[in-house]
Design a protein around this nucleic acid. Sequence first.
DNA 1: GATGCGCTTTAAATGC
DNA 2: GCATTTAAAGCGCATC
Lengths: 94, 94, 94, 94
Amino acid sequence: MADTPAPSTGHNSSADPSSVAADQLQSFIDRIERLMEEKAGLQSDIKDVFAEAKGTGFDTKALRKIIALRGMDSAERQESEAILELYMQAIGMI
Amino acid sequence: MADTPAPSTGHNSSADPSSVAADQLQSFIDRIERLMEEKAGLQSDIKDVFAEAKGTGFDTKALRKIIALRGMDSAERQESEAILELYMQAIGMI
Amino acid sequence: MADTPAPSTGHNSSADPSSVAADQLQSFIDRIERLMEEKAGLQSDIKDVFAEAKGTGFDTKALRKIIALRGMDSAERQESEAILELYMQAIGMI
Amino acid sequence: MADTPAPSTGHNSSADPSSVAADQLQSFIDRIERLMEEKAGLQSDIKDVFAEAKGTGFDTKALRKIIALRGMDSAERQESEAILELYMQAIGMI
DNA sequence: GATGCGCTTTAAATGC
DNA sequence: GCATTTAAAGCGCATC
């Protein structure tokens, strides 16, 4: 995994800014890709847990909703509900 | 179709199946929330790296594009190789 | 541009099954693509209306929700709510 | 296209701002639902054509892929042409 | 009828 | 703050 820094040009003096930039670029890309892989792994784990819950008989959709509600602070939750109700009243749904 | 029967009051004898379900539910929620937090942490790390790259003078948008393209590359290649076969299939030649 | 080489070879006798198939294929593709374009146009119109509503001061998210609710029959709506409540009770959210 | 302003309540004084808003809301909802219905109709038509193609002996999956690939083609091409420039931007050469 | 996959749609994040 | 871009979720199809 050691990134062979091997500058292909060979004459990579520190005075050559574009090579430095290229190295930096490569480094940033590597770091980001690494983090993205880890993130994808976690995403996959989450998916697995949902699947397990489903296998145990839980309703996945409701589960997601609960988690979303928990993550919402009650203020914005009430806000959202208030707007919705307002609109529903306006068009006579309630 | 809810299989989950009457959720009852707080106290759980181990003979109470709905309490077991409640515990399971809580457990699933906890696990998922935990994983989501970790994921959010990584997301944040990624953001930081992009910010750092930007501070170093790189164009964030271009950087994102490069990473996306790198990720697509292998998949795309396989796709391309499959096209001909697909066409043949489509017109019933195979 | 379509790469599919037009079977315009003139000597396209009806005894050549693959040419017939190719023509049919082209026809199906054309019809589907045409319909998809129309669909995309409508999709775009919908987007525009949402944007207009937003410009008038409406909350887009709530608007979407109302439309979704209207499209749902009350039975399944109650069902969903019941499950959610059940779960919330189970974990002590209500 | 003439939007029938038709205030549903009937006794809608023009001095009541919330009624105006309600009318607007109703109007937006109607327009969106109408467009969505048309869209659903087209979707259904597309499905029918696929079914017909399948009945004629074509492989539906392959057909879908072909259409998707054709649609991607032009976009992809533009993307590809932009890559070089993007790379150059990314390493600060432009 | 249930699972997996791919596409559409929706929510969030970023940049201007 | 708005508008674009990107990720995630939901949905519908096809298959087994």
